[in-house]
Structures are given as C-alpha cells and as structure tokens.
Simulated assay, not measured.
Amino acid sequence: MIKVDSLTRTYGSYVAVDDISFECKPGTVTGFLGPNGAGKSTTMRVMVGLTPPTHGQVTIGGRHYIDIPNPGRYVGVLLDASAQHAGRSGRETLMLGAIAMGLPTSRVDEMLQLVSLTPAEAKRRVGNYSLGMKQRLGIAHALLGDPQVLILDEPANGLDPAGIRWMRGLLKAYADRGGTVLLSSHLLHEVEQIADEMILIGRGKIVAQGDRQSLLAQSGPESTLVTSLDNAALANALSAKGYHPVPAGDGIRVDCAPVEVGRVALEAGSVLSDLRSGSAGLEDLFLELTSDTQREGIN
C-alpha cells in the first residue's frame, strides 16, 4: 500500500504540492491525473526519496522508501524513461539492475521478452532507442525485481496504440495478482480504461478522487441522446412517462438513463437509430475541475 499523508512540497514561495492525502491499495490501479505542472511528478519523487517533503510524509508498505532494504525488490519505479544511460545497451541496463538487486541473470531475458524487446534491440545502445522502446525498457526495469508496488510516471508517452493496449493489459494483470499500481498521466482517456481509482490534481491540490462512477456522479444528472425514425412520436411517449425531452441536433435529449429511454421506445414501438449517454464525461469533469490550470481557455 502507498499512503500519502498531508504531503506538502514548496520551492521558496512556490507550492508544488499542497497538503494532499490519499492511499493506493493492493490489487488496484490508481490513476494520478492532472495537467502538466499539477504536482504529479513532484509527489512521485517524494515517494521514492528523490525529493524531501516540506511537510507530511509518504510511506510504502508502512515504511519510507529509504528504509526499505533492497527497494527494487519491493517497489518498481519509472519516473523518466529518457533518464537511462545512453551508452549502455538495453540488456546491459537490465543486467546491472539484476546484479544490484541480487537477481539471477535469467530474469533479464524474462523481462526483455515480457516487454517485447527483441534480442537485436536489446543489444542496441539506449541512446539509439525510440521513446517507445525506452518506455518498454523502463517498464522492464521497474518489474525486474518482481515488486509488490509499481510507481509509474507517464509510462504511455511514446507508445503507439498497440503498445498502450499492451501496457494496459500488463498493469491490469499485475494488479489482479495483488500488486499496487500508481499510474500518473495527463491522458485521462487512457487511464480511465484501466484505473480502479482516480485522483485528480490541479495546482498541487486534489480536486476530486474516487472510482469512475462516483466521479461521474459529480458531473450532474444523467442524460441521454436518442434519435429515432419518428422523433416526435418518441418525444410524446417520453413525455407521457413523465420525462422532459428536448430537441438536440437530429435527435432528442432527455434527463434519464439510456436504459429508461430504450424501455420507453420498446413499449412505444419506436425504431431507434442512435442511443447513447449525453452526460458529461470524465474529460469534461477533469477540464472543469482543473480549468484554472489549463493554458488554453475552456469554453
């Protein structure tokens, strides 16, 4: 478990992280979401002892990172995929990690295979890797010691769509085996497909946290967008049930769940050509809650 307790980090008068608290539990993937500069990376650096806290603390399994013996065997970390020795090969990078952690060298081949780096790629210097290949190598290094906790900062950067799907499956399987994953990103759409819990941060403060359903509940009442072959007849049927349909584009918007609209349409014999949620999504909520941190104006 990762426990962040009243954590604050300041740089002079600048407050990078402002009195935040949250937990990441075993068996779950926690998405740590916020715009660039929101405080995500600073929080993660404090977690692994690279940046001292100004106030508060972070513990992993009840201990500070610096107090964990052979920490790579308990906590896998990837904070910057590009911060790897450019002159070493991918295999050499993992081999040195294995030696430092007291692992058998066979673990290196296992990890290279897991992240789909070929033998030829493993022999190349890291300085000649693409960003996506560096991410794969960084994930391999984080998993090298078979840790119980993973702390990953923007691991999807540089991965192609197939690579992002692969990473989602890898992390979900890791959590399903009881591991704890903290995954930071500014790409909400990618994280919401895998995260069990999400923490939204802006200007160093947590602005919302919870699972997907609880966060969506904050965005207002549920609504539905529906189009039928006879919108007028469907609108009358919805009105007769006590709903209040209004025109919306080529169809109708009504403040109830899609399943309720579908039930009314079935009873009325209406043929639907489109039925979907019209509620604000997580992206809308995210942008609304962090609007004062966005460089672009939110209309």
Results as ranks from 00 to 15, higher is better:
residue 7 L to I: 01
residue 11 Y to V: 09
residue 14 Y to T: 12
residue 19 D to K: 03
residue 23 E to Y: 03
residue 24 C to A: 02
residue 25 K to I: 09
residue 26 P to W: 07
residue 27 G to A: 14
residue 27 G to T: 10
residue 30 T to F: 03
residue 31 G to K: 01
residue 33 L to P: 01
residue 35 P to A: 03
residue 36 N to Y: 00
residue 38 A to K: 02
residue 41 S to Y: 03
residue 44 M to G: 08
residue 45 R to V: 07
residue 49 G to R: 09
residue 50 L to C: 02
residue 53 P to R: 09
residue 57 Q to G: 13
residue 60 I to R: 01
residue 66 I to E: 14
residue 67 D to G: 11
residue 69 P to G: 02
residue 76 G to K: 05
residue 81 A to Q: 04
residue 81 A to L: 05
residue 82 S to N: 02
residue 83 A to L: 05
residue 83 A to V: 04
residue 84 Q to D: 05
residue 92 E to W: 05
residue 100 A to W: 10
residue 108 V to G: 02
residue 111 M to D: 06
residue 124 R to I: 08
residue 132 G to A: 01
residue 138 G to T: 07
residue 141 H to Q: 10
residue 143 L to D: 06
residue 144 L to T: 10
residue 151 I to D: 07
residue 153 D to V: 10
residue 158 G to Y: 13
residue 162 A to T: 13
residue 163 G to D: 10
residue 166 W to A: 01
residue 174 Y to W: 11
residue 180 T to S: 05
residue 181 V to C: 08
residue 184 S to G: 04
residue 185 S to I: 12
residue 186 H to W: 06
residue 192 E to N: 01
residue 198 M to F: 00
residue 198 M to W: 00
residue 200 L to D: 01
residue 205 K to N: 09
residue 208 A to D: 00
residue 209 Q to N: 08
residue 209 Q to C: 02
residue 212 R to D: 00
residue 213 Q to E: 14
residue 214 S to D: 00
residue 216 L to P: 00
residue 216 L to C: 00
residue 219 S to N: 14
residue 219 S to P: 14
residue 225 L to I: 14
residue 226 V to T: 09
residue 227 T to Y: 13
residue 233 A to D: 14
residue 234 L to E: 10
residue 237 A to V: 06
residue 237 A to R: 09
residue 239 S to H: 14
residue 254 V to K: 15
residue 262 G to W: 11
residue 265 A to K: 09
residue 266 L to D: 13
residue 269 G to C: 11
residue 270 S to P: 14
residue 274 D to E: 13
residue 275 L to M: 06
residue 280 A to S: 15
residue 288 E to W: 07
residue 293 T to Y: 08
residue 295 R to D: 08
residue 299 N to Y: 13
